[in-house]
Amino acid sequence: MTKEVEKNFQTIIPPVDIIETKNSYIVKLDIPGAGKEHIKAKIEDNILVVSASIVDQIGTGKESETMKEYQREFSLANDIDTSTVDAKYELGVLTVTLNKKIQFLPKEIVIN
């Protein structure tokens, strides 16, 4: 990649699926073409920020080099345990698992 190349920037908001399970929230984002090293996920002030920078989608050349920027933010409710967040990237999909705090898990009350 040379500096002379004119880059076309696009910021894309990746579509998201969120599924709530008994113990967690599963967040899935379509970020095709990134390697693990291009994706950043961080939690700051209860906001989950997912971003990725992807260069040259077509992977063949110089003159039409395209830069894609993905970013999406999620504000987290206080039922999420931010110390046990898990993320994986597979088939161009980033899956972030946000576990619920123990005190927010459903409890069954035994009737005596």
Partner: peptide, 30 residues
Amino acid sequence: RFRFVESTRGVAMKDSGDAINIAIELPGIA
């Protein structure tokens, strides 16, 4: 306000002289 519908999204096609290169975004598909 975040609309970025462009023809390059999803499919990219490139003429590299001796070949045509096509890239298609298919996230989540094996």
